[in-house]
Simulated assay, not measured.
Amino acid sequence: MTATDPREDLRRCLQDARDALLWKLDGLSEYDIRRPMTPTGTNLLGLVKHLTGAEAFYLGETFGRPCPAPPLWITGDAAEPNADLWATADETRERIVDDYRRVCAHADATIAALPLDAVGRIPGDPPVDITLHRVLAHLIGETHRHAGHADIVRELVDGAAGLRTKDANMAPGDAGWWEQHRERVEQAARAAAGNTRDA
């Protein structure tokens, strides 16, 4: 692919989301990358595991280029509901992250090998024909969505926030500044609800 190839633009956008997701695991304990932080069990390592299956499915199986990966819960009887959204105690961080990187490399090879108008087939009843362009649009959206989930989960775990370790892409401010900002947002919410309280 050349630097002006639209496939490369799309792949880079996907890679930005992949990178943002993976750094959210950095520096955390085994417990913290696995613990459920929402009522539906959302956790950091589970998000990586889920996206491993998604990339293998959409940029592997769909285009006749299978790549071993955990099955997505949406793919029928292959897995129990939500099995791809959490890690069992014997599934290591290293294995899940290595699987994700391996599947992403396989996905990148699919992107490089096929034109954007290449047609793949999503199995189902009935099967759905879909172009590589449409698959990439879907995966970019899905990966960025889950990277956003990871942003919130990581902030709840230890307060770390931002897009990347070296480029937070956030307003500058220390802990005190953020505490004051949060309080302003809280006051505005209460005022809008007609339930003001003293600062």
Rank of each mutant, 00 (worst) to 15 (best):
71 P>G: 05
110 T>L: 09
77 D>Y: 03
85 L>S: 08
111 I>Y: 08
156 L>Q: 08
63 F>W: 07
58 Y>T: 09
129 D>S: 15
131 T>V: 03
153 V>T: 05
70 P>R: 12
175 A>T: 11
138 H>Y: 14
124 G>R: 15
196 T>N: 00
104 C>V: 12
53 G>S: 02
133 H>K: 14
50 H>P: 08
117 D>F: 07
8 E>P: 06
193 A>N: 01
127 P>R: 14
49 K>S: 12
39 P>N: 06
115 P>G: 06
44 L>S: 10
190 R>K: 06
42 T>H: 03
114 L>W: 10
163 L>P: 01
103 V>S: 04
119 V>G: 12
104 C>H: 12
171 A>I: 12
133 H>E: 13
56 A>Q: 04
126 P>G: 12
97 V>N: 12
17 A>R: 11
131 T>D: 09
68 P>V: 00
56 A>M: 04
91 E>Q: 15
95 R>T: 14
175 A>F: 07
15 Q>A: 14
186 E>I: 13
86 W>G: 02
110 T>H: 05
80 E>P: 08
28 L>K: 13
32 D>L: 01
128 V>T: 15
170 M>C: 12
93 R>E: 15
127 P>W: 14
192 A>D: 03
168 A>W: 03
67 C>L: 02
98 D>V: 05
68 P>K: 09
73 W>D: 13
188 A>M: 04
101 R>N: 14
177 W>K: 09
42 T>R: 07
25 L>C: 03
197 R>C: 00
109 A>N: 10
17 A>T: 07
46 G>E: 00
122 I>D: 05
107 A>H: 09
71 P>F: 01
85 L>T: 13
5 D>C: 08
86 W>Q: 05
36 P>K: 04
9 D>C: 11
117 D>A: 11
72 L>N: 00
68 P>F: 07
137 A>V: 15
50 H>M: 01
121 R>F: 08
61 E>W: 14
25 L>V: 01
199 A>W: 15
80 E>W: 03
85 L>Q: 14
11 R>N: 06
198 D>V: 10
108 D>Q: 11
151 D>H: 05
114 L>T: 02
104 C>P: 01
22 L>H: 06
